[in-house]
Write a protein that binds this DNA or RNA. Structure first.
Lengths: 212, 212, 212, 212
DNA sequence: TATGAATGAGCCTTCATTCAT
DNA sequence: AATGAATGAAGGCTCATTCAT
């Protein structure tokens, strides 16, 4: 297999990735993917046999990307806890900026397709549970020494994910009328990044009863 | 037209609604919708002519539902500002509990389909802009009298929506391993509702610089 | 059956007639005919059972009309032969003006549908052959007494029909660019009527050898 | 692509041509065309995409054929005017003998389909008008020098077309009972060819007033 | 490896016709 | 008599996949 072959195979994969991310499995057509990759339709099936198979390649790569990025985010550099959260949130946000179609893809093609979700369930249990347990331990430690309010780890992670991810679902709407005059989209996103971190900081910060 | 007849027409609409909400336009098949409704395939076309048309009926109803609920949420009962936010957030949350598939439907079929988004753009501009302006005025008033921190209205709304909506995207995942032992899903959602309100209250509350 | 009923039945027949004449059997739809007649689709089938049957009613009526008109044309008023030809041609021409869609209908639905043609073959033989024989006898008589050139009866009839009928096939084209400036379509048709008669007269007129 | 492949594509086109010529667009079914061509139904769509498209291929070719033949007919060999008319009429007649279904096809699918006629209107104006003008000039010249009676060019062309074309519409009828005993169809057509030319010659010939 | 050709299955839709009331 | 509802059959078309070369 020479470079050219690899290129073709890769071109198909990239065209498939773009198409699947944009439209999902059903609305994507192999003919169109092949055309986008600049190869014959038969070629696509020659390399990847079935649409399902091609989709799985893309899917697995995206899941791997997601897993890797999450693991990276949860790495433990020497840094105060809150600072690490703040940095981690920023990195998460930036990751989505780089992969803006990924959240929708994951939700539509993984979370809301029971069959596919079942396939990754065991992996999730194996990988996610320990991570969350570890995170909880650290949070408890911080709370115990009075650095932050006590909080459930899942709750915190969900808060962060909600703020960081949902923005990108709302973006097409926001573009229509909610970006302030004179502000570029990039600036808007920067502002949101700060806002999101701010909210989480505020949430974690030790404070008097929120009795108002 | 007796009850049975109406039932058939209605059954098709309901089957279509479920199917479209679950799978989106492309992945939904009229044959399958008809089967689900317990009618012949031709019957579906007899009542609704085309798949597109049937979809639009469902779509329009959902958009109307969304619009009505938003307007209700933004109504102005006699109540302190923060309390109104809290109540409104809860109502919003409850609305999604009742319509858990709606957010994904709106995102996939409206926000990420440029043609469809373009169709409602003018309506959005007409309806949403004034509401936001009004909200901003009120916020500014509250901030001026020192009741809350100053905040951009869009930012606040986006914060609220993010927290309330994204939860339901993550739910299939959460069900797998993140609901604490002994807690029902209902209890979990109740907890999240409080958490979301808490975060927003915290965000709005007047406080010293978050200099930690 | 009261007047109203008859009206409905008649309305269907008329709508069918128009539609079948315009578009032929296959391109005509019973739904459209019913709509055109202002009755429900089921009504049409209630009265006429099948599309085929409805078509036959229209068809038979048109064939009868055609036959009657031809018989009228070939009637034998007391008049010199050539004059009778001229008058008959004009009447034929006028008949087509009144039934401009009939020739195309007959050609498409009768002459070029072998099955249908077979159905009327025996009738034709019975009716047309004697008429032609009689015409030939008269022609031969006239020729014998030197009033006209000798001619085959079928040839003459075909000449006449060609000139009178084909004009109406060419009319859509003629309308586009061949009607002289300042001449109305009606005037154009009058001119053609005279021209056609002129040609036939010329053809029949006793003359020296056409050796040029 | 070997001979067989081309044959298949070609076979479809030929089957389509025959079917469309026989029945027109609406009454022709792609399934039937495919069967007639001896290929699967999907194959037809593989090569020609849509029925409309396949029809257009046939249609355009027929229009081209028609145009070319007309231009050939109007070519200007060195020959006396009347002789040229006679030769041209014969060629026209022979062209229809070779393409006996063409006139009906043109009338039904072009002249009586306003949309299609509109499509070619500009071409017609561009091509036909000058030709007619030129023909008129020549006629006027001949008339001026006393060689023929004066006549409108459109009138003459219509006379010729009527006689040559209509015959083929009447042919199914003529076959049934109007071909003289002992005469073959071929001989009959030869006779008609002469008759048609004779009539036009007679029409053009300088003569005393047709006052009989 | 590469590809044009080929196909079966399935989808959306229309339509003539029948049925129940 | 009248009609809304219902349906089987068929039509046009797409698409993932396979085959022959």
């Amino acid at each position: 297999m020479n470079t050219d072959d690899k290129n073709k195979e890769q071109a198909i994969l990239e065209a498939a990735e773009q198409t699947f991310l944009e439209k999902g499995f059903e609305a994507s057509k192999t003919t169109q993917i092949a055309a986008r990759a600049g190869v014959t339709h038969a070629m696509l099936h020659y390399y990847y046999r079935t649409k399902e198979n091609l989709f799985n390649m893309v899917f697995d790569q995206k899941i791997r990307l997601l897993k890797d990025s999450l693991l990276t985010l949860l790495e433990n550099p020497e840094m105060p806890f809150l600072e690490r959260i703040r940095i981690g949130m920023g990195a998460h946000f930036d990751f989505i900026v780089e992969n803006p179609q990924l959240p929708r893809f994951v939700i539509n093609e993984l979370l809301f397709k029971p069959k596919r979700l079942a396939l990754v369930e065991s992996t999730l249990n194996r990988v996610a549970r320990p991570l969350i347990r570890k995170a909880q331990q650290e949070i408890d430690l911080e709370a115990a020494r009075g650095a932050i309010r006590s909080i459930d780890a899942v709750t915190l992670l969900l808060d962060i994910a909600s703020l960081n991810v949902f923005l990108f679902f709302a973006l097409p709407l926001i573009r229509l009328f909610a970006i302030p005059e004179g502000m570029s989209e990039k600036e808007f996103l920067e502002m949101r990044k700060r806002e999101n971190a701010e909210i989480i900081m505020c949430r974690l910060k030790k404070q008097p009863d929120s009795n108002f």
